[in-house]
Measured scan of single mutants.
Amino acid sequence: TSSHKLRLYERDDYRGLMSELTDDCACVPELFRLPEIYSLHVLEGCWVLYEMPNYRGRQYLLRPGDYRRYHDWGGADAKVGSLRRVTDL
């Protein structure tokens, strides 16, 4: 099985509160109590970021690497509604 891990930060450049995720999350704002995510670091696996909860809205593919600001993943703003692991490519 492949492993997945990413870290979410409330501010750009990996500042502020950090939360780690290793499984799908249908509602990021509810789980982490963060209305917006300004940076993230994908440590393992690929993920799909959705701008709205319950895997809706615009989708962004996140490969392992650094995303210091939301425009690094192509986002128009810092809204992160849900995240899902990519298990098949």
Rank of each mutant, 00 (worst) to 15 (best):
A26C: 12
S3E: 09
G65P: 05
S3Y: 11
C25Y: 03
V42Y: 05
R15V: 07
H41M: 09
L40Y: 00
C27F: 03
E36F: 09
W73G: 07
G65Q: 00
P29A: 14
E10C: 08
A76M: 15
D24W: 03
L17I: 14
T22W: 05
P53W: 04
H71S: 15
V48Y: 13
K5Q: 04
C27S: 15
G81K: 11
M18G: 04
P53H: 08
Q59Y: 14
M52W: 11
G57R: 02
L40N: 01
A78Y: 03
T87M: 13
T1M: 14
E36K: 15
L6W: 03
Q59F: 09
W73Q: 05
Y60V: 10
V42W: 00
L8H: 03
E10I: 01
L49P: 01
W47T: 05
E30T: 09
R15I: 04
E20L: 04
R63A: 12
L89A: 15
T1R: 09
Y50H: 08
Y67R: 07
Y60D: 04
D24Y: 00
P35N: 10
G65I: 04
H71M: 10
E30G: 11
D77N: 12
L8C: 06
W47K: 07
G81V: 00
D88E: 06
F32W: 08
T1W: 05
D66S: 14
L49E: 05
N54D: 11
T22D: 08
R56H: 12
R85I: 07
G57S: 03
L34D: 15
D13L: 08
K5D: 00
M18N: 12
G16H: 02
Y60N: 01
G45R: 01
E51G: 03
V48C: 11
L83G: 03
C46G: 00
L89C: 11
R56W: 02
L34R: 13
D88M: 07
P29N: 12
P29L: 11
D12T: 12
E51D: 06
D66M: 10
Y14R: 06
D72F: 06
D23R: 08
Y60Q: 04
E20P: 12
D88T: 06
I37E: 15
